[in-house]
Amino acid sequence: LASDLVITEADKARINAIDWLVFDEAHRSEALKQANAIMRSFIVVKKHAAARQVFEKLPSDTIDVIYRQWHHKTGTGELPPSDSNAIREYLCMKAYLDAVESFNDWFSLFHKGQPAKPSAVEGKASFTDRVAFEHKMKQYNIEKERWMHNLLTQTKTTRDRIYNVLLFADGGWLTDTVEDPEAEEPRQHQMNQLRKLHLPGLCLNLHTVLHSSGLYPEAVQIADVVASELHRLYQNFDKESVQHLLAMISKSSACLLDENKDPLGKLEGK
């Protein structure tokens, strides 16, 4: 699960260092690359709140500024490989942080937001006690329905955001699209590590969200996405994590069987 660790003084110093780079627009490309590097180092230890703070340090016009600066300097609209890769990485980071935060919201709604069922009246209850209980039950049912509704909304948002990461357009999450002859080896290595570390975890989170909300057919369909040659997500899984995912999916399939439905949640006849 997405744990969030304490932001230390040293972390804060690194986050605040970005402030120095955003004063002058000419440095914005460098600011973006430094921010990306710091976010990578936070995300690898699951310090998502810290990564978000770094993200927030970059003004929202950063991409525009980089284009403008480059155009000003060279007269062309085509960015150098390192810049276009950095912009893509920044968008990947945003997609990831959005997904994690949405999942955390879902998690607390699911575990803490659920209304408590009133305890039944014991033994020979008085008339007023029974009336009070009925009233509480009525109240509880309304709250439960509201909670279910909110949970489903949050489930769908979280699902969409996780899919935004899993199916990140044009080559996948945290991959470069432009070949950069001057690319730094450590960056490539870190991005590779992050994919292997987080993509299987996100798939499992996606399963948890869908399964817990009773969306078993969608939970089973995760298999289609992971196995697909279009996205090759399975390449980021080791044996153990594929086994884990299969165990989870088979649980959803078993739930469908228990409900006397098709075990893969497909339509039966029409």
Binding site: V220, A223, D224, V226, K239, Q243, L264
Partner: peptide, 21 residues
């Protein structure tokens, strides 16, 4: 009978092969 069912069965079968030790 069902294309989407075949797809999921194939996908699961592929994942099971990848998980196999």
């Amino acid at each position: 009978n069902f294309l989407s069912k075949k797809k999921t069965l194939l996908s699961l079968s592929k994942l099971a092969a990848l998980a196999s030790e």
